[in-house]
């Protein structure tokens, strides 16, 4: 399907290597950074569920195919962000 990751050597950009871990939602400043933290750390479980749902049939994706999973994911992100959209 996709090239397995151990076939390649990865380089981590110096800036990111120094920064170390991703900042958590409370430490981050801009709304985009807070969204990033919410999507990748705070709601990692729900993100994974949604991702796995897409991955299960990514060759034939239909609209709202994973709507329940996304709703849970989005709900979590909105709770962490303390705002609705």
């Amino acid at each position: 399907m996709l090239p397995s990751s151990d076939e390649f050597a990865f380089r981590v950009p110096e800036r990111l290597a120094q920064a170390g871990k991703i900042m958590t939602a409370s430490q981050s400043t801009t709304p985009l950074k807070r969204l990033a933290a919410a999507c990748t750390t705070s709601c990692a479980v729900q993100a994974k569920e949604y991702g796995q749902c897409i991955l299960a049939s990514y060759t034939d994706v239909k609209r709202d195919m994973c709507a329940p999973e996304f709703a849970k994911f989005k709900n979590c992100v909105q709770t962490v962000m303390k705002r609705k959209w």
Binding site: L2, L35, A36, C39, T40, A47, K48, Y50, G51, Q52, I54, L55, Y58, F70, F73, K74, V77, W85
Partner: peptide
Amino acid sequence: RDILTAASAIYQSMH
């Protein structure tokens, strides 16, 4: 925002 949120989860799961 929704697309970005969804894409971040898909990117992580697929790649």
